[in-house]
Structure formats: structure tokens, C-alpha cells
Design a protein around this nucleic acid. Structure first.
Lengths: 223, 223
DNA sequence: CGAACCCTTGACCCTAATCAATGCTAGTGG
DNA sequence: CCACTAGCATTGATTAGGGTCAAGGGTTCG
């Protein structure tokens, strides 16, 4: 039952912009945008907030560069990570249907994001039917990602959650990669405490599947 | 932090078709469809499967009537419910980006569903830009629903999960409603065992917030 | 009337949360 | 350069929430 899903990404000719590579050109400027920072693009430092849960939702965002995390906080103040966002991902689509953002989005690494005011996006969708198709595709991909998260949070035990998450963030076997989040944040994403995350990581190390070096990790090819 | 989200539903003039009420007319026939069963519509009996996880994804579905459940099964055979579908909901959107369905969809009550072959949907999206906007809106709503599910599966303890789920399915306080699923299925949706679900329900009864009568339940207005 | 189911309840166990202490870096200012 | 601090990671002891296993009681339907 192991099935490879296609992601719908990188179907068009490469343009240097990961959103355009997915066919998304939600702004009139897109056609002439060469990927360098310019009007409408936003640079976020590490820890910078793209938007906050509950704020007026008037902008859709396209991630150009960096890693961000969608999180949502319960009334009791407990944070739950929704998913990680990377180049080409879309967020803030609540703006299409709701007046408020449902989650907060924080940059885990320095990031570059394209801001698309909702009015501009809707105008473009209304005139350029291909953009509608492209955005639907992108949203369908995001939904698949959310379903994956549900499969992690529902039936998966802690050890497996941690291994899955680390593998998703790591590079090829043997390659060192710096994690963009600490144990607590990893815990928020996986609905575990930082202590449990730490213990699971140690267990992977002891089992010889993983090496760590501060926030850098690498998986070892199984012998 | 209690915020009311609008659902994006029922924005257009009522037509008798919940999908069209959301602005979705993905087939050429839609304009003349009066909601009665006809070409393209599918009737499912209780327990009927709309599609299976892993099958070739070539159709998008619009729920017209009834309640269905998206579920996904792990390699070890454990089922995890994704979400409940009701009139106006869209499912099978993996067809837009992937060759295979990511989940199975089962009818919990007798249901009526509109089948939209992906080729037809794409042709329509490509020619009718307003349909792109409508489908994007619908997908954004579905994403919000999935995020809600993550908030249930992540930080919420069993008791609260069960109460939340039951309240979502129940009618107004004092009104009897027949649940479309049994304890085991409720457990699959909430990532709990049927025993735990049962215990939580009993606890609600003992607390006086709920009455049950076979599969019928009602919440009592708090005094 | 019997046979599937479904639901409930109890006893026990195990995973992960909680509470608490200790080390480890990395940055800051003297 | 060296304390000093603050955040982060690890580890241990204990607890509790929910899973598992098992039995019994209710419905519903042929």
C-alpha cells in the first residue's frame, strides 16, 4: 500500500520563482518578476511573524524561500503546529473565505514571501482562468499535506512521529542538515512534549540510525 | 480568542443544490440541473464506498445529500478518520494533482453525490474563471476543516474530543438526533478506541450534559 | 428465537506527560 | 579572558490517561 503521490510541483518551465514553477502567478507583476526582492515581496528574519491567528485576513502568501511554520493556539494557550511551509507553498488562504486568519505563521529560518492582497488575487482569478486551475491544484496539494499531518497525529506513536518528522526535514542519508526548529517546537508540531522528543531522538541515536551535532542531524544509511 | 469563522457557504441564491449554493457549477449540466437524480449523480446506500484509497483518481465529488466519512488506513491496517462530509462539501480533489486517491470515502447515511470527471472539471475551470474562484473558496473551506481536525487530534484530551465531536453532530440543545456512526467509527475519527469513546459518553451522561437512547443523543441546555 | 452486532464495564498495563534536576552552549558585559 | 546569564537539551522519578484484553448485557433483524 506504499504509494508515491505526485506533488503537482515543478510542472512548468523553471523561472527562479518556486510559485511560478507551480503555475502560480497571482499578481499582475508576476510575469515580469525575476525573483529578486521587489514590491510585494517580504523578507522575514528568523522568528518573524508573517501573520497572527485572529488577525484580519486580507492577504494570501506564497513562500519563495525559507521555512515557516503554521501554528494555532488553543484558548488555554497550548500551541499546535499545523505544518511546515517551504518554497512554493501557499498560506493564508483563509482570506478567500473568512475575515480572520485561523493560524499564525512564523519564520523558522530567514524567509522571503510574496504577499498577494486578496482583492488583487480575486481580480486575477476572475480574469485569468488558468490561475484558478493553478491555485486549486496548489490548494489540493496543501490539503494532502494536512491529511499527512492527521495521519501523524492520529495513529502514530511518539517514536515514529519523531522519526517521520526528522526524515522529512533531513537530506539524503549521510548528509548533515541543520534543523530549523528546536525540541520544543518539534514537540508542538508533533503534539509531544520536548522531553519526549528528546528521548525519541536519543533512542534513534542509540539505535544507530541517526547522528546529531547540536542542531545538525544526519541519518545513516542502514548497513 | 473565540472567533466565528464564516464558511463561505450559501452565498448565492438558493438553487436546491448545496454545491451550486456555494457557487460551484463544475459541470456544464449544472445550470440546468434541478437537484433531482440524473446523469452524473450517484446514489450511495449506507456503507457504500464512494472511492477507495489508492484507486486511480479521476473524479472530483460534490456531496449533495447525506453524511460521508473520509478515512485513511495505515500500512498496519489501522484506520484514521479524516473528516465528515456533508451537503456542499468537496472531496476527491487529489484528482487535480495526483493519480491516486489518498483516502477512502464511505457513506454513513444514504447519500447523493455529484460525480465530476476530472477532465470535465478542468475544462470547465479553464473556460469559466468564476468556477476557479468558487472551487478555490471551497478548497479553502475544506482546509479550514482539516485544521480543526488537527486541533482535535493534537492537544485535546479524550473527553473533550468526544464532547466536541458529539456537539458538532447534534442539533440544538434538547433536540434528539440520530448519530450516523457507531462507537468504533467515532473512535476512528477521534483516534480513540471504542471503549474510551463509550466511557467518555457515559461520563457526559452522568454529568447531566447529555442523554442517549440507542444511537440517538441530545444535549441538555445547561440550567 | 437465535445470531450478529454493538455498547458498556472492569482489571491491568504501558506510553507519554509532568515535575525536577543537571549539563551544555552561546551570547554579554566586566 | 573570564564569570554570568539565559535558553536549550538531556535524564530521571513519578503519575495519569488511555490502550488492551476480557466478559457480559442490549438491540436489531432475519
Amino acid at each position: 500500500m506504499t504509494v508515491e503521490w505526485t506533488t503537482g510541483r515543478a510542472t512548468a518551465a523553471p523561472t527562479g520563482c518556486p510559485a511560478r514553477d507551480r503555475g502560480l502567478e497571482l499578481r499582475n507583476l508576476c510575469g515580469s518578476c525575476d525573483g529578486r526582492p521587489r514590491q510585494g515581496q517580504l523578507r522575514l528574519p528568523r522568528r518573524g511573524m508573517l501573520h497572527l491567528q485572529g488577525e484580519t485576513a486580507d492577504t494570501v502568501f506564497l513562500v519563495i524561500e525559507g521555512t515557516l511554520c503554521e501554528t494555532r493556539t488553543t484558548e488555554e494557550g497550548r500551541a499546535q503546529g499545523m505544518r511546515l511551509l517551504g518554497p512554493g507553498d501557499v498560506t493564508g488562504t483563509e482570506a478567500l473565505v473568512s475575515g480572520r486568519y485561523q493560524c499564525s505563521v512564523e519564520a523558522l529560518t530567514p524567509a522571503r514571501v510574496c504577499r498577494v492582497p486578496i482583492a488583487e488575487a480575486e481580480a486575477r482569478l476572475a480574469t485569468t482562468s488558468l490561475q484558478g486551475v493553478a491555485l486549486c491544484r496548489a490548494l489540493a496539494v496543501e490539503m494532502m499535506g494536512l491529511r499527512e499531518r492527521i495521519m501523524v497525529l492520529g495513529p502514530m506513536p511518539a517514536q515514529e512521529r519523531v522519526e517521520t518528522a526528522l526524515r522529512a526535514m533531513a537530506g539524503d542519508d549521510g548528509e548533515w542538515v541543520r534543523l530549523p526548529l528546536n525540541r520544543r517546537e518539534l514537540g508542538e508540531l508533533l503534539a509531544l512534549t520536548q522531553e519526549t522528543v528528546s528521548r525519541c531522538v536519543q533512542r534513534l541515536k542509540r539505535a544507530g540510525t541517526l547522528q546529531t551535532q547540536g542542531r545538525r542531524i544526519r541519518f545513516l544509511a542502514r548497513a
